[in-house]
């Protein structure tokens, strides 16, 4: 009986497992294999030759390849950290605002917030590149009204990456607000009523009820925000081309330049493997931290 059950389970799982194997696991394994090869992306896989860890030595080495890769890795880490640090608190703040039933215009605000997520990145990039325009750009004109001199935004290596982060936050915060609202709806109203009876003020209710009970939602939001941020590509390709001085050269854009434009498939694969490993480490660390908190 159990054997028949196992056989039928196997048959039913086979299509999904096969598809996952072909379209997810196989490309991942292929990328890992290619990272140990000297291979041009324009030639068949058969032309790849095994070079051990040379690609990894190169991307962490002192030459321009190593410098560019390490720079791109650092830029991606900064971009991701800033995006998550800004998006999560803002999404909770907006979620709380929108979730309050007694606030007028809550539904309209929810619609406005989510609409930014639906705008295609090409349109966002075009609009923001004009907003950030030095001198005559609307943002600089507004700053001028406040008595602040023109800011270089995308034209300075100090501010270009942060400017791209703001663009990302603007576009993504609506989506994460919706997630936060979903988390808020899971908190029983009776807990707030009990807290009120015990004399807890709004801040204490937020600190001791809302935040702890939203931990799972926030964990999910953080993981999704990290994955989204690590995959940033379009604003860099459309607006800054990785510049100035490589200050917005993020890993996905750099891998495209190395792997496709220069056809250095082995090096590009080694970079992709490092990106994948970094992402796995960060997400696992996040889950481990959340589990430890749960146990406490």
């Amino acid at each position: 009986m159990i054997e028949r059950y196992r056989a039928s389970a196997g048959i039913m799982l086979a299509p999904a497992v096969t598809l996952i194997g072909i379209f997810i696991l196989l490309p991942m394994l292929l990328t890992v294999w290619l990272s140990f090869q000297d291979w041009s992306t324009q030639t068949p896989f058969a032309s790849a030759s095994f070079i051990g860890l040379d690609n990894f030595r190169e991307i962490f080495g002192p030459t321009s390849i190593g410098r560019d890769f390490k720079g791109a890795l650092a830029n991606t880490a900064i971009y991701t950290a800033l995006s998550v640090i800004l998006i999560l608190p803002l999404s909770v703040a907006f979620g709380l605002m929108v979730y309050q039933h007694d606030v007028a215009g809550g539904t309209a605000l929810r619609t406005v917030l989510f609409s930014t997520y639906m705008v295609p990145m090409i349109a966002v990039a075009l609009v923001w590149s004009k907003l950030y325009a030095p001198g005559e750009g609307p943002l600089n004109q507004m700053l001028g009204l406040l008595g602040i001199g023109p800011q270089p935004f995308l034209s300075s290596p100090r501010s270009a990456l942060i400017s791209i982060v703001f663009l990302n936050v603007w576009q993504q915060v609506g989506y994460f607000t919706v997630l936060a609202i979903a988390g808020l709806t899971q908190i029983p109203g009776s807990l707030y009523e009990a807290a009120k009876l015990d004399g807890a003020n709004r801040f204490e209710q937020f600190r001791f009820i809302t935040l702890p009970l939203m931990r799972r939602t926030l964990l999910f939001s953080a993981v999704i925000a990290i994955i989204n941020a690590v995959q940033v590509f379009e604003p860099v390709a459309l607006i800054t081309q990785g510049g100035p001085v490589g200050s917005t050269n993020v890993l996905t854009y750099h891998i495209r330049r190395v792997g496709i434009e220069r056809a250095q498939g082995g090096l590009g694969s080694a970079m992709a493997v490092m990106l994948m490993l970094s992402l796995i480490v960060v997400v696992c660390a996040l889950f481990a931290l959340a589990n430890r908190k749960d146990r406490e």
């Binding site: 390709a237 800054t240 081309q241 100035p244």
Partner: peptide, 8 residues
């Protein structure tokens, strides 16, 4: 340099 940037 801030006046020197180019796009795609």
């Amino acid at each position: 340099p801030a006046m020197a940037t180019a796009d795609a």
